[in-house]
Simulated assay, not measured.
Amino acid sequence: MKIRVETTVDAPIDQVWRAYTTPDDIKQWNAASEDWHTTAASVDLREGGAFCSRMEARDGSMGFDFSGTYTRIVEHQLIEYSFGDRAAEVAFAETPHGVRVQVTFDSEPAHSVEQQREGWQAILDNFNRHVAAKR
């Protein structure tokens, strides 16, 4: 099943794209809640390139790597990637109200669809706040 989340960022497309694809930025916004953070990020933004974000609980009790391979890149428009046996697409579209960032991803069986939607939406909301704070 595919799940979709989205936000509209009030910033120019080049700023939105850069914040989404730059490791230093990713470390600042990539968390679903205040008790998690991203301690390391790497990005090889090209088709066939790899990415990895190390996500850890702030109390040090657990962590995991979110990693995969970029399968399609259209600058300022689209990022497609695979992670494990799942895939995701990030679409960027300029609108009169800013840049709409829409993430569509394959669900997984360990968590409910609602839990997955809420978690990914929280990360995207953090992304929006991060870009807004940089303006």
Rank of each mutant, 00 (worst) to 15 (best):
Q102Y: 02
V103G: 06
R100F: 01
E108P: 02
E75Q: 13
E89Q: 14
I123G: 08
G84H: 01
G68K: 09
P109H: 08
Q102M: 11
E108Q: 15
Y70W: 07
H111M: 15
D106I: 07
A87K: 15
Q102R: 14
F105Y: 07
W120K: 06
R117Q: 13
F66K: 02
D125P: 00
H97M: 08
E89K: 14
R86D: 11
V101Q: 02
G98P: 03
F92Q: 09
G68V: 06
I79A: 01
T71Y: 10
G84S: 01
S82R: 12
W120Y: 12
Q77P: 03
Q102K: 11
Q102H: 05
Y70L: 04
Q116W: 03
T95S: 14
K134A: 10
E108N: 11
D125T: 13
F66N: 04
R100T: 11
Y70I: 02
E94R: 14
V103I: 13
E118Y: 07
G84V: 00
E80W: 04
V113T: 09
Y81A: 12
F105E: 00
I123M: 14
F66E: 03
A87G: 10
F66C: 04
E89S: 15
V74Q: 15
S67D: 13
V90I: 15
F92Y: 15
V74T: 13
A133N: 11
D106L: 05
R72Y: 06
I123Q: 09
F105R: 00
Q115F: 12
Y70V: 03
V90M: 11
R117C: 06
V90A: 11
